[in-house]
């Protein structure tokens, strides 16, 4: 049985045509490979966390809104030495923790239904990553109706009671 290497036709082809490596073709393949590799990396590096803003209402005054007794308000602040503020502080009424994991567990305990309203009340100077940890914990507890408490005025001070849901 003749093997591939012993093929007379192939030998003749190689001899007569002086087969060369198609370098341009390899260039194209290499470029395509590079492109797809980079694109795949972009896809895996970044994801998204959905947080749809309420459709039926805009920023409201506390005086105008009807207080929803079922809603859970997660207060998010930060603590740390100096201006680092690297440690999150999550609190729901009297309960408090520094761990997003414990917050997720707490939310699971409080969860009555998937549409239970949750309000994330973040302090204006709190690092954004702590707010995302709270939102992530809500997603972990399968709570989808999440609102964000808005500041009373941009750049202004104000107390917590002045804040209204977005």
């Amino acid at each position: 049985m003749a093997t591939f290497g012993q093929s007379k036709v192939l030998a003749q082809l190689l001899e007569e045509e002086q087969w060369e490596l198609p370098t341009s073709f390899i260039d194209i393949v290499f470029l395509l490979l590079l492109y797809y590799t980079l694109t795949m990396k972009f896809h895996t590096l970044e994801q998204r966390l959905e947080a749809h803003l309420p459709k039926d209402k805009g920023p409201q005054n506390v005086a105008q809104q009807v207080k929803n007794l079922d809603e859970v308000v997660i207060n998010v602040t930060a603590a740390g030495p100096g201006r680092l503020l690297d440690t999150p502080v999550f609190s729901i009424r009297e309960w408090e923790s520094n761990s997003a994991n414990q917050l997720a567990q707490r939310l699971k305990q409080l969860r009555q239904a998937a549409d239970m309203p949750v309000v994330i009340n973040g302090k204006p100077n709190c690092p954004f990553k702590h707010i995302m940890s709270a939102l992530d914990a809500c997603a972990w507890a399968d709570l989808r109706k999440v609102e964000f408490r808005a500041p009373p005025a941009i750049g202004g001070g104000g107390s917590d009671s002045d804040y209204s849901p977005l």
Binding site: P54, P124, M132, I154
Partner: peptide, 22 residues
């Protein structure tokens, strides 16, 4: 700081854009 993200969210609300993701 979260207040800067709040500004963006407020701008979205005022522009009647509700589909927001992070």
């Amino acid at each position: 700081q979260y207040k800067y993200v709040q500004e963006v969210m407020m701008a979205c609300m005022k522009a009647k854009v509700w589909k927001v993701s992070f």
